[in-house]
Each structure stands twice: as structure tokens, then as C-alpha cells.
Amino acid sequence: MAFHEVRFPANLSFGSIGGPERRTEIVALASGFEERNTPWAHARRRYDAGMGLRSLDDLSALVAFFEARAGQLHGFRWKDWSDYKSCLPSQAPSFDDQKIASGDGMTTVFQLTKTYSSGPGRYARPITKPVKDTVKAGIGGNEVFPGTHYVVDHETGLIAFADPPEPGAAVTAGFEFDVPVRFDTDRIAVSVASFQAGEMPAIPVIEVRV
């Protein structure tokens, strides 16, 4: 299996349905209380690519993309229109959107992350597929610049600084990102008549670990 660094047509993913999925194991005790645990450290996202189709031309583009990926065999990039920025959807990414680490005076390479917070809960999501030329970075509250101060591996989400950030200095970043996914089916079944009547084919897409 390979991962193709190509994005599913963004105009087709715009109308898709999907989002994060968690796995929780629940054991009901005799006392009526519950014990809850999860084997997953990270959520896994699922989408339905069929919901974004609006014309037969869209369907043709999807079939071509599906065939070029050999069905489930090869992964690809997916733009999740509900969650594709380091900031709020209405804002533009800034170098201080997300704190991804604190400097220790030695480490130069850091993983891009996006943190989700609500009440006492906090979840840091690794970002492995940043969009090219969208990553901005900062150290200790000051913006630094690509090429001169750092480089980004857009296939892994690793950012490498020319010099290690000072101990305690906040390492921050802002970016747009894609979700690494694959098709979750080896079959597309669609009737032109039913499609023109408004019946959308189900084409599941699922996040993969890379």
C-alpha cells in the first residue's frame, strides 16, 4: 500500500457528511456504575464522498479518482471543510494559533499538532498532512520564517528549525491541513437514472494512520 500525496477534489468533499469517531469500551457493574475505557488515543474520522456529487461530471471525476487509487489500496488527502485550520473557521491561520511544544535548547524537530479544549478535557491531535505554503511558525511569541528559520515536511507534519528553541520558549504554529484517508470500499454502484433523480451513491472514506 502507498499513500498518494494528492487531494480528493475539494469541490466534491464540500458537501460530504462525516467527522470524528471514538471507540469506548463500557462495562456495566453489578452496582449499576460503569467502567469506561478506550483503546484509541486518537479519533478516527469517517466521511461519505457520495454526498458531495452534484452532476454526472462530478461522478465521472470521482470514478477517475477512485480508479487511480485502485479502490482501497492507496491513501490520499481529504479536505474536511468543518475542520481544516489551526484557528477558527472564520479566521486565517497565524503563527501563534497552536502551542506545539516548549523549547529545551536541544530539540530542533517538532510535530505539528492541533489542541481541542473544553472544560477539563484536552486533546492534542497530531497533524501529519499540512497544506503546502500555509504553515507559519513562532518561537517565544515572535514569528520566524520558512527557509531562513525552519522547513516543513508536508508529508509528515514535522517542522525542523535551523537552531533549537531556547529552554522554555513556546514553539507555536498555524496552518491548514488535510486528513490522510482511503476509500473504505472496493466498489462503486450507481445508476444514472437514480443519480439524476437525486439518489446519491454511498462512497465511504476512512482516516488512516501514516
Rank of each mutant, 00 (worst) to 15 (best):
residue 143 E to R: 00
residue 143 E to Y: 00
residue 144 V to P: 00
residue 144 V to H: 00
residue 144 V to M: 01
residue 146 P to E: 09
residue 147 G to Q: 11
residue 147 G to I: 07
residue 148 T to F: 14
residue 148 T to W: 10
residue 149 H to F: 01
residue 149 H to E: 01
residue 150 Y to M: 15
residue 150 Y to W: 04
residue 152 V to P: 01
residue 153 D to M: 02
residue 153 D to K: 00
residue 154 H to L: 11
residue 154 H to I: 11
residue 154 H to S: 14
residue 155 E to M: 09
residue 156 T to W: 12
residue 156 T to N: 06
residue 157 G to W: 02
residue 158 L to E: 14
residue 159 I to A: 01
residue 159 I to R: 02
residue 159 I to G: 02
residue 160 A to H: 08
residue 161 F to V: 09
residue 161 F to Q: 07
residue 161 F to P: 03
residue 162 A to E: 14
residue 162 A to W: 12
residue 163 D to R: 07
residue 166 E to F: 14
residue 166 E to T: 14
residue 166 E to N: 13
residue 168 G to I: 11
residue 168 G to H: 11
residue 168 G to R: 09
residue 170 A to K: 14
residue 171 V to N: 02
residue 171 V to P: 01
residue 171 V to W: 01
residue 171 V to A: 04
residue 173 A to I: 05
residue 173 A to Q: 05
residue 175 F to I: 05
residue 177 F to R: 05
residue 177 F to Y: 15
residue 178 D to K: 04
residue 179 V to C: 13
residue 179 V to A: 10
residue 181 V to S: 10
residue 181 V to K: 02
residue 183 F to E: 12
residue 183 F to S: 11
residue 183 F to N: 13
residue 183 F to K: 12
residue 184 D to T: 09
residue 184 D to F: 05
residue 185 T to R: 04
residue 186 D to F: 00
residue 186 D to N: 08
residue 187 R to F: 14
residue 187 R to A: 12
residue 188 I to A: 07
residue 188 I to R: 10
residue 189 A to Y: 05
residue 190 V to H: 03
residue 190 V to C: 06
residue 190 V to Q: 04
residue 191 S to I: 09
residue 192 V to F: 04
residue 192 V to L: 10
residue 193 A to R: 14
residue 193 A to I: 15
residue 194 S to K: 15
residue 196 Q to V: 11
residue 196 Q to P: 13
residue 196 Q to D: 15
residue 197 A to M: 08
residue 197 A to F: 03
residue 197 A to P: 09
residue 198 G to N: 13
residue 198 G to P: 08
residue 198 G to S: 13
residue 199 E to A: 05
residue 200 M to L: 14
residue 200 M to C: 02
residue 200 M to T: 04
residue 200 M to Y: 12
residue 201 P to W: 12
residue 201 P to Y: 12
residue 202 A to L: 13
residue 202 A to V: 15
residue 202 A to K: 13
residue 203 I to Q: 06
residue 203 I to N: 10
residue 203 I to E: 09
residue 203 I to Y: 11
residue 204 P to S: 06
residue 204 P to K: 04
residue 205 V to F: 04
residue 206 I to Q: 10
residue 206 I to F: 11
residue 206 I to D: 10
residue 207 E to I: 00
residue 207 E to P: 00
residue 209 R to T: 14
